[in-house]
C-alpha cells in the first residue's frame, strides 16, 4: 500500500472510533426520547452528521487507495456505465435521458470500483445541477486511442469564476445540500492515475458537459478481462 494509503488508513481509524461512539450513543439516547420533542430531532441531526462524516472517511479511503497496480482490471467502459445507471435511477428518472453507447470495444485498464464512482459522481452532479426536469445526455465513444465518457446537462452551466478552481478540493456549489467538494477533485485524480484526463467543455451554449477519456486497452485478453 502506498504511503498515502497508510496515512489515510491511520486517519480513518482515529476518526472512525469516536464517530462510532458518537453515532451509537445518539442511537441509545434516541430510544428514550419522544419523537415529537426537540431533543429527539437534535439528536437525530447529530446522528446524521456522524453518518455523513463516516461516509466522507470511506470516500477518502477509497480515493487514497488510488491506482494500486494489483487492483487494475481490464473492463468495458460501456459495462461500467450500464451497471452504474441503475444506482442513479431516482435522480435521473425525472429528466429526459439520451444514452448512446458506442458499438466499438471500450476496453480500459482501471480499478472498476473507483471508475464507477467517477461515473456516478459526474452523472449525479449533472442531475443535481438541473433544479427542474431537463435534458441529460450520456455517451461513450472512441476518440483515436482513447475511450471517452461524456455527460451533458441542460442546467445553468458552470458559474462564472468557478471554472478555474472547479477541480480544486473542497470547492462546491452544493454546500446547502451537504456537498463536500471532494467529488470532482477526487474524480480527476482517479482518472489521472489511470493515465486519462477529466475535464469539461468550455464552449457549450447551455448547461455543462463533463467528460473523461482513458487509454484504450489493446493488449491480450486474459482472466482479468471482462468483454
Amino acid at each position: 500500500m502506498s504511503a498515502i494509503g497508510h496515512l489515510a488508513g491511520n486517519i480513518a481509524h482515529e476518526l472512525n472510533n469516536p464517530l462510532t461512539g458518537i453515532r451509537s450513543l445518539c442511537q441509545v439516547l434516541l430510544q428514550n426520547q419522544s419523537q415529537q420533542g426537540q431533543v429527539y430531532s437534535d439528536l437525530k441531526e447529530v446522528e446524521m452528521a456522524a453518518a455523513r462524516s463516516q461516509k466522507i472517511i470511506t470516500n477518502l479511503l477509497n480515493f487514497s487507495k488510488g491506482a494500486d497496480r494489483d487492483e487494475l482490471k481490464v473492463v468495458s467502459l460501456n459495462e461500467l456505465v450500464e451497471t452504474t445507471l441503475p444506482l442513479l435511477k431516482s435522480v435521473t428518472s425525472v429528466h429526459q435521458r439520451e444514452i448512446h453507447f458506442t458499438l466499438e470495444k471500450t476496453l480500459v485498464k482501471v480499478d472498476p470500483h473507483l471508475t464507477q464512482q467517477v461515473i456516478f459522481n459526474l452523472i449525479n452532479n449533472a442531475c443535481q445541477a438541473m433544479k427542474e426536469p431537463g435534458r441529460l445526455e450520456i455517451q461513450t465513444s472512441i476518440e483515436g486511442d482513447w475511450v471517452q465518457f461524456t455527460v451533458s446537462d441542460s442546467g445553468p452551466g458552470i458559474p462564472l469564476g468557478l471554472g478555474k478552481t472547479i477541480f480544486d478540493p473542497f470547492v462546491t456549489t452544493k454546500s446547502e445540500t451537504g456537498g463536500t467538494g471532494l467529488g470532482l477533485s477526487m474524480s480527476q485524480r482517479v482518472i489521472h492515475q489511470f493515465g486519462g484526463e477529466l475535464a469539461y467543455d468550455k464552449d457549450v451554449s447551455c448547461g455543462a458537459k463533463f467528460w473523461f477519456k482513458l487509454p484504450q486497452f489493446n493488449g491480450e485478453e486474459n482472466e482479468n478481462t471482462h468483454s
Binding site: 472510533n17 469516536p18 462510532t20 461512539g21 458518537i22 451509537s24 450513543l25 441509545v28
Partner: peptide, 15 residues
Amino acid sequence: DEPLVRIALSRACKT
C-alpha cells in the same frame, strides 16, 4: 480504548 464506544455499547447492552 475509545471511551465513547464503551459508553455507547454499555448503555445499549444495559437497556
